[in-house]
Write a protein that binds this DNA or RNA. Structure first.
Lengths: 193, 193
DNA sequence: CGCGGGTTTGATGATGCTCAAGCCCGGTGG
DNA sequence: CCACCGGGCTTGAGCATCATCAAACCCGCG
């Protein structure tokens, strides 16, 4: 149950067996069925979730009831609404499962205690956040600089197998375009190239 | 010269005078004139910069020579291309001064040594990154969910005095719209409401 | 076999872009 | 002190991209 997490940690910091055990003890395992919520708009985000297996998404629903996908999370990724998690304000986002999933949950008090008892984990989280920030920044640049078609091509280059795992509407929502537009772009690319 | 930095640190972790001194010793002060580059596309980003005074911006230039503003940085903010900084790959972005500025620069080796000698700074940087990530995430949601007008209003609510400090074209570029469109939006808002 | 979610296709329209011109204002030099 | 210059902002006309709405289609599953 903790293999993926242990691997993720060991890639970034060195922990001995005891520390790793201790670390693991702060997490709560949880299984989620496809379509099940981990977080609903209006609730406080009580966990950051590490994905051992499966796939989740976080998204925002605007006033016209349109969903806008903020993030995918597959095996080895983290997902949460950090703002709500840290401030304990109600979240404006939703998180749910795109596939049946196995998670490891960390509450805010558990994280705080973990960081006290295993200070090396500060480093783990710092490095993690650094990578997330770089990815988010890329996404901002992408949304500012490229056309819908270019954004789609870049996404496919970065995550070639994503289309096997998530529906096209999810990808469209992630790219900030409608499913119809994505469908036309794909047709375009498939034919004339 | 280090007041703003010291304040930023003390807001997040407790350092005694010695630690603070030691910390400061890893930074190199630098002044930048308006329009001067800190980083140019193609160069490796050798510093993360802390802004003691003035204002900078990071931006990307697309193949049609259009600038897209990634981030503003005023007093108390950090700026860099983290990807290039960490990987030592050439950067795809530019950073320059919007106003005369005073910076404190941290190289990658200096940062590593700092973190070894003052491990509490892991926590400082973690918290910092957490906040940056939340801000970036908001920006993604904003770019996906709102119209140009809504994005502009939200920006003005979040940073009411930004328009006193940076030209409208910079704001337009940050919002992902043309200066013409921003001008029309402002006219709209000023008149009819 | 038929239902339902996801994808495709078509017709129409809105939002924001492009290009081009004019304007405002502060700074500089004659 | 005034004329000129240049950068930034505004305005207008035409246009491209992508959204909307509606219908048909595809296919896996009960």
């Amino acid at each position: 149950m903790y293999e993926v997490l242990a691997k993720s940690i060991r890639e970034k910091v060195f922990l001995n067996e005891d520390e790793m055990q201790l670390c693991a003890s702060f997490f709560t395992p949880k299984k989620l069925r496809k379509k099940q919520y981990l977080l609903q708009e209006g609730d406080v985000c009580r966990y950051t979730a590490f994905v051992e297996k499966g796939a989740l998404r976080s998204y925002h629903v605007d006033k016209k009831d349109q969903e806008h996908l903020i993030q995918f999370a597959f095996e080895g990724w983290w997902i949460a609404d950090s703002y709500s998690f840290l401030t304990e304000e109600p979240s404006a986002y939703n998180i749910d499962a795109l596939e049946d999933a196995e998670l490891l949950l960390l509450t805010l008090p558990a994280q705080e205690e973990l960081l006290l008892k295993v200070p090396k984990m500060e480093r783990y989280f710092r490095i993690l956040l650094q990578k997330s920030l770089i990815a988010m920044q890329r996404r901002v640049v992408s949304s500012l600089s490229y056309t819908a078609e270019e954004k789609y091509i870049k996404l496919m280059e970065a995550y070639p197998n994503i289309s096997q795992r998530v529906a096209q509407q999810q990808i469209a929502s992630y790219l900030g375009i409608t499913p119809e537009t994505l469908s036309r772009i794909r047709k375009q690319l498939a034919s004339g190239k």
